[in-house]
Design a protein around this nucleic acid. Structure first.
Lengths: 248, 248
DNA sequence: CGTTACGTTGACTCAAGTCAATTCAGGTGG
DNA sequence: CCACCTGAATTGACTTGAGTCAACGTAACG
């Protein structure tokens, strides 16, 4: 995790941990130099709100480390998470003045921010950025549609299994591990956040996690650390076509 | 609706009904000329499948007239619609070889198609196309996220009201009518398709439509023609913040 | 004027929600 | 070091909204 000194210092793009996955992934060295001029880092603590829905959007940016959530709230308080922001994910929408969703840090969070107008200017002149952003947006759209199937048609147990397999997959790719043999990871979300993600109540989340544990699909150490002895079993519970789909 | 002769003729982009809303919206005259060279029209009948999920994608394109649906299906047959394609909407994903979803024509459909490789080449060289596609993709992502809230958190009645208000809005903008006073439109979807969109069963859809009719929120002429005497009432039923949000 | 596909309605069931009582884990401070 | 506190998580008892199964309408079409 970066400390205050690191933040003050003008962090070098070349050594950035998300260099090859973020909006800037396709940029040449000289393009990076221009980005360096308009970028700055911001740190948020776990639980802090990064952007409020409806507020003016002063900046766009990339998640460097930590996890944030995108959520939508109805007047009566019902909430639905509509995105999970992980390192390298992009926040904000060029060409729009106000934020459409709440962005909340669920862990300590470091963001690489660009003031909105300079970034938009640069996007005009730098096709590499726009190209990468298009690619990332298309991926997010696919993820959102995948999630629509989960929300609309899956049972509570399948929803939980789906979420766990997504996190497991993410964790495996991030840590360059294969998907053979047992996988272990920490849940980055509270039961309530999982409920918001899955369109369930936190009680149902809790019950279904207990049920998966009872049935040996997962093993828990404490409340947050999960071990998956057999990934294909979990995928089957998720209702995705066995080990065929995502992991293939 | 276009007839066979129109299809055979090389339809002129300048007089195209979706000229200013589709991927080509931002193109200059000379860019349009280049697009004309690689485009061709295809017609599909109501009920026909345009693309099967998993198939090689030979082309991308725009809906010129008619309506199509994007759906995802689980092995056991559960289905979730993940997109509703209306005139000017874009079909296909540049940079991907196989289709991720089924595309089905729900009405007679005319599409303006581009063979995939030439289109991708052109995208590289024509920032206007990529820019417009990014904008459209961001809009679709917003729509998908809006829909996640509907799927995850709304009741059956609210879901139906939400769908009706979306269709009413679309219809009003398409026909350049205001949103004051009573609105009337035809449902472009069967009860089953609505159920697939909303994550419900067709019985529940039917019951909730009957309930909204009984309560005077909507008036039906036949099974498909809907009149909304008071739009703000419908929006309230949808759980969106009154007339504030979408119509503002 | 049947046939067929689409739609409606009713009776019953069940998965998930609600409300409420405990339990658990991790920090804090005496 | 331990007792206490707090927020997170679990579990149970009960309720309910939507699903299931099944019968019945209705309108378009050959």
């Amino acid at each position: 995790m970066l400390n205050e000194r690191d933040l003050a210092a003008h962090q070098d793009c070349e050594s950035c941990p998300i260099r090859h996955r973020a909006v800037c992934a396709r940029c040449e060295t000289n393009e990076l130099e221009r980005l360096e001029e308009i970028k700055y880092y911001r740190k948020f603590e776990a639980g802090q709100t990064v952007i409020w829905s409806g507020d003016r959007m002063e900046f766009v940016g990339s998640v460097v480390s930590g996890i944030a959530t995108l959520t939508q709230t109805m007047e009566d308080g019902r909430r639905q998470m509509v995105g999970l922001l992980l390192p390298s994910d992009f926040v904000g929408r060029p060409g729009r003045g106000t934020a459409a969703y709440d962005v909340v840090a669920t862990t300590d969070l470091v963001m690489c921010c660009f003031r909105k107008t300079p970034f938009e200017d640069m996007m005009q002149k730098t096709p590499h950025i726009a190209q990468r952003l298009l690619e990332m947006t298309l991926d997010e759209l696919d993820a959102a549609r995948e999630w629509m199937l989960v929300l609309g048609r899956k049972t509570a147990r399948e929803k939980i299994a789906s979420l766990l397999s997504i996190i497991a997959r993410r964790d495996a790719t991030l840590n360059q591990r294969g998907t053979e043999g047992p996988l272990a990871f920490d849940l980055p979300l509270t039961r309530e956040a999982m409920a918001d993600y899955l369109g369930l109540t936190l009680e149902t989340v809790s019950r279904q996690i207990s049920a998966l544990k009872r049935d040996g699909v997962i093993v828990l150490q404490g409340k947050r650390h999960v071990t998956v002895p057999d990934m294909s079993l979990l995928l089957e519970e998720a209702g995705d076509d066995a080990d065929g789909g995502v992991f293939a």
